[in-house]
Computed example of a mutant assay.
Amino acid sequence: MGIINRLLLLPYTLVAMALAVVVLAAALRIVPESVWLNELRYALSRQELLAVCGVFFLVSLKFFFAVFSRTSSPVRTSGEFMVVDTPAGAVQVAVPAVRGIVERAALSMQGVRTAAAVISVHDAPKDSPATPMQVELKVTLAEHTGVNAVSEELTAKVRQELHDVLGIPEVPVMLRVTEIANTGTSSKRTLS
């Protein structure tokens, strides 16, 4: 639910709750009939009631269409996602754990100095053939390292590691070389 719908929903709900309490009080005869009928006649004679009813109707219409609106599948970069649904129960893996798998696989390759992964999880239906996640990998390479050879090997290694550990085949991997460092910088640290 979007922020606009949330902001509209709060006063809408408060007005609906107040109206329900007033109707309940009238039905249980807590408020005498002469009092609420007099107040109702006064409210019906006011022009402001038409404006309030119009706004209430428009907000109701917005919520009505929001129920039937289709949005694209949301993408998350944190939390957990289901990998396997076994007879023993559902196995869920945290996104930081997947990030760690990808970064370790990248840093184990010769020529890769640093690696930072962003994992995007797609909340798609279970029966959807789409891949449940996508990997964006930012790396720093050592000097005199062939970008073409490293990119092919690194992409294949990350895909194979994710397939071996998580059982997810053919995960899309987008590789970005952010820097080519001199060979004197040999520390393998993860970028933030």
Rank of each mutant, 00 (worst) to 15 (best):
V22A: 15
E48T: 09
T145D: 13
A181F: 06
L44A: 06
A43H: 06
S73Q: 11
L61R: 01
I168R: 06
A97W: 05
V118W: 04
G54W: 04
T71L: 08
R189W: 00
F63P: 07
K157Y: 00
M1H: 11
T13L: 12
A94W: 06
L61K: 02
E136T: 13
G54Q: 05
V55T: 11
K62M: 14
A90C: 03
G100E: 12
F56H: 11
P74F: 00
I3M: 15
T178I: 11
A142C: 03
T13N: 09
T145N: 08
N5C: 14
V121H: 03
S45Y: 02
E170D: 13
L61M: 14
G167K: 08
I30H: 05
R70A: 08
P125C: 10
S128P: 05
P172L: 02
L107V: 03
L44G: 05
A117S: 10
V150L: 13
T13H: 11
A94P: 12
F65L: 13
M174I: 07
F81Y: 14
L28G: 04
L137R: 05
R99S: 05
Y42N: 11
L137V: 04
A16D: 00
V84D: 13
Q110K: 08
G146W: 08
A20R: 05
Q160M: 02
M17Y: 09
H144Y: 13
T71M: 03
V91D: 13
R76G: 08
S192I: 04
T131V: 15
S78W: 02
G54T: 14
L14V: 15
S192E: 13
A90S: 13
S186M: 11
T131Q: 07
E179L: 00
I101W: 02
V135Q: 01
V173A: 06
V59Y: 00
L14D: 10
F57M: 12
A66Q: 07
K62V: 15
E179T: 03
A115F: 02
S45A: 13
S45K: 05
A105C: 10
P132R: 12
M109S: 14
L28N: 10
H122V: 09
